[in-house]
Design a protein around this nucleic acid. Structure first.
Lengths: 205, 205, 205, 205
DNA sequence: AATGAATGAGATTTCATTCAT
DNA sequence: GATGAATGAAATCTCATTCAT
């Protein structure tokens, strides 16, 4: 019994079908990523989704495309919340920065291997890095600029470096359960505050 | 007990030869690690060294053994210098800490993929991680304790976390040449100083 | 549940294709087993079949699976024939036993190395041994019990030992073309008959 | 301190030395064969003996040469005993045959993998087979002929086939501890006795 | 004679990706 | 559009055997 013709298109499968498949794929991938990390074999995702491997490749040509899609909702949330924040503008900028950074870290930490994956030099994973940078960097930049403007934090730190650093500090949370990533992030943020104008800098990059 | 060697070098490839081969192996491995990371195929190292693959396995049964050996000199230097420091004891403890941490970072940064490799959970790479922890953690711990005792830094940060954090902050230096690892490390160290006793902590690990 | 196949064969390589490949694999394996024994490299079978190595692993995860499959038809025949035997029940039990045993031997003898393979203690080959024991031991047991019940053969010999012995006697037929395996089997069967109630036994296993 | 010049030969090592090494080799090989079978890696034997691998190859160019040498004493015993037998000639020929055959089987059974090794098609193992055949076949032939001459056993069975059969029946004793090799050998020997002149023969080899 | 380091062919196994149906 | 069988490059690791010293 073929899918009823809810759509007049000549294609055998209608749009709803395709969307349903894509969603099944995303759900499966999310589950597998949690279980086995973002480097899990494609076949595992296919099995979990009940779809064929070819279908995965059709929808998401590279693995990074799939990863990006899987985490889109959360990235969206991270990308938009600071604007829609119900919290009044009275929230001090530095506080807003801290809050967001820890939310970002929470996101990375709960996705097994996601922080590592951002560094994978596999061709396709540049997309992943780019996606994150393009979506989230402006947000962090805004928060950082506001905090600096308020005099709370140093003005000479780029959002780009901070973003990579935060991501990096989240690496290894699973392998070394003892590692206190959030404390280290707090250290980094504390170092960002403007308390000691005479802090010496280390030469080099 | 069959006739033992009556002469210091009557039998087999002599020791000098073997040492020469081992050095060739280490040199080749170092070069390949720089070019292709510490996960480069064994065969590549064999080719570069001009030796057979079996020879590699004889000298270094696991990949981690080879990696450890390759970096042994530098790890040794990192492990011992703080003691023999020509610098007088008048060097403030916090300064000594900073200096060492940046040297550690320099070491990681110039070895492509070494920081990443420390996080590999592949069986053999635990050795690598352990080697680093065993050799260098005591050093960092001493520096950190001294600095805290002098009242320069917070006493509630573990050397273990700091070590992993430093290592993490070095990740991605090559993939993203723009990334200022040393600045981020400075931030972390600045955050470590005892300036704001009322710093809020983030709940969670 | 994504759109299921609405047609018996709309998707992927169709079943006929797959079956054809599997048969090609079995044929190739049979040929290679004859030429080079059941321990022949997988790659050789792949080459002979014209298929990729991965395909072999998909169809037969372990070598023993392949061996079992290759000989399944003949094992089936050996396992079932005694029941469907066109020969009337008037066939004396001992005669039936002899007939079957020689058929079993013929089977082993024509499969180069099969008897040897049954003794391999390589993990996967236990399957092979088990397959044979599970399928054929009951058959031999039935024949042996009937023969003993008829008073033709000694009742104190286990089918298990007999089966291993028969298999063993088939070893070396190819390496030593001169060796008369069937005569030796006949000797064993003759020794099984109940003629000399005073036969001395050898102590030990 | 070089070995004292007990021998005027110009060679650095005297004959006693060489003999001592050969014995160490044989002892080591025997031990390793028991532990790991006759297919144990050469290096294992070298390690056990305390000698170099090159020395093994010098003394025993092929593995079979080593195997033969290791078991030479026992083969010698099997080859000569029937003649020196203190037992009087009054011992019935068939009884002598049985006794010897079981001793032969005991020998094979206690040497792990020796019976299997006789069938190895590895080039060098032909030597092993030949050695056994050359040394022991005449003995078995004599015993068999005598027994047949006494009218105890069938005259139409060749010692060669019998010898291979005995060897074969010993295979698998270790892998299947349940297998009663000696009982099967007794069966074979019983079948050899001349009780039923009308025994049917199976056509074929 | 003795040594044992070196060699490197060979066997296994995994998965990303393609493409015939 | 969907399928999943097929592909085969890659990577690892093991020993039998040689040969420089």
């Amino acid at each position: 019994m073929p899918t009823p013709p809810t759509d007049p298109s000549p294609a055998g499968r209608n749009r709803a079908d395709v969307r349903r498949n894509e969603q099944a794929l995303l759900d499966a991938a999310a589950a597998v990523f949690v279980r086995a990390g973002v480097h899990a074999p494609v076949r595992q995702i296919a099995a979990e989704s009940g779809l064929g491997m070819g279908t995965i490749y059709r929808h998401f040509p590279t693995r990074a495309d799939l990863v990006v899609a899987v985490f889109k909702h959360q990235v969206d949330a991270l990308a938009t919340t600071p604007r829609d924040a119900t919290a009044p503008a009275t929230d001090p900028p530095y506080q807003a920065l801290r809050t967001w950074v820890h939310r970002f870290a929470d996101f990375l930490v709960t996705k097994h291997g996601l922080a590592e994956a951002m560094h994978s030099d596999q061709a396709g994973f540049e997309n992943l890095h780019n996606e994150f940078v393009e979506r989230l960097l402006p947000v962090l930049d805004r928060l950082l600029t506001a905090s600096a403007a308020a005099g709370s934090t140093r003005p000479d730190v780029r959002a780009y470096d901070l973003m990579l650093a935060i991501g990096n500090l989240c690496i290894g949370v699973e392998a070394f359960p003892d590692y206190r990533a959030h404390q280290m992030i707090d250290l980094l943020l504390a170092g960002l505050t403007r308390t000691d104008p005479a802090t010496q800098e280390h030469e080099g990059n």
